[in-house]
Amino acid sequence: MIGERWTLLIIRELLLGPKRFSDLQDHLGGMSPTLLTARLADLAESGIIRRTALPRPANAQVYELTEIGREIQPAIRELIRWGGRFLFPPVPGDAFEPDWVMLGLDAIAKRTPVIKINVGLIVTHGKKSADFTVAGSESGTAIHRGITDCKATLEAPFDAVLQIVSMSVSLDDAIAANRAKIIGPVTPIRKLPQMFDLAERRRGTTTTASPQ
């Protein structure tokens, strides 16, 4: 049901929220309208997605995941975590949508108690950008669209954000290289690595004992 070409990419888009047919086409460059129609029909027949209408004033037909469809999110999260190692170095011409950042950050967000703080994040890619709030609490780290109640904001390309939260590049070095910019005090931004498990995973892979 989900192994056909393009199907997981359709599900990725719908994990971010309901989408019109044209929205899916825009974010799935290279997929023909005929094939997209067929894949959506198969997913609907399997009970993974449904077609519905947005309330007025939008009044548009959209596709969204059903409860069964949303249950695949943990598996998608693990695929993202596994695939993160192939993000560097960035390849010119790679497809990128800032909204995809939300899924990427969710995949590495801590799900154990973290410091209670809101940090703004502006992720850029060429002329595109997207705003997020990284919110810490006793439940872990949550990622929300838009910047809300944040004393400080980090602006950087996605690969620089990942390098900062993984502590593979220091915040100071990223700023000095013009790869990152801070709006507001720097102290909240320095706490970002504590809100994700990327730095811990990186330490785990680099401290493995070598065979003797």
Rank of each mutant, 00 (worst) to 15 (best):
T207P: 08
A109R: 05
L43G: 13
V169C: 08
L24N: 01
F158T: 08
T52G: 14
Q163D: 00
T148Y: 11
P18D: 00
T112K: 04
A58S: 07
F158A: 11
K151V: 10
V169F: 04
R190I: 09
S129T: 12
A176N: 10
G184W: 00
T148P: 08
I115H: 06
R190D: 02
F88K: 10
R81W: 14
F86E: 03
R111P: 09
A209N: 02
R179A: 14
R81M: 04
R56N: 08
Q25W: 04
V114Q: 01
K110C: 12
D173Y: 08
A156V: 14
I189V: 15
K181A: 06
E4T: 11
V165I: 15
I80P: 09
R70I: 07
T133A: 08
D26M: 12
V161W: 03
T112P: 07
R39H: 07
Q61R: 10
T208A: 09
G126P: 08
Q212H: 06
E138T: 14
F88N: 10
A109I: 10
L36V: 10
F86L: 09
R12M: 02
E4A: 12
S166R: 01
L35Y: 02
K19E: 03
K181N: 04
N59W: 11
P33L: 10
P57E: 00
F132W: 01
D26T: 15
D99A: 10
F132C: 13
C150F: 13
D106N: 12
A75K: 03
K128Y: 02
K128A: 06
L24H: 02
I143Y: 01
F86N: 08
L105H: 00
Q194Y: 15
G126H: 03
T112Q: 05
R201V: 09
I115K: 06
M31Q: 06
T208Q: 05
G140N: 04
P185S: 04
K116H: 01
E71S: 15
M102C: 02
M167W: 05
P193R: 10
T52A: 14
A38E: 00
D106Y: 05
T141P: 06
K116W: 00
M167D: 11
T34V: 08
K191C: 13
L103T: 14
E45V: 09
G69R: 08
E67F: 13
R85E: 00
D99I: 15
G47R: 09
G184Y: 00
R85P: 03
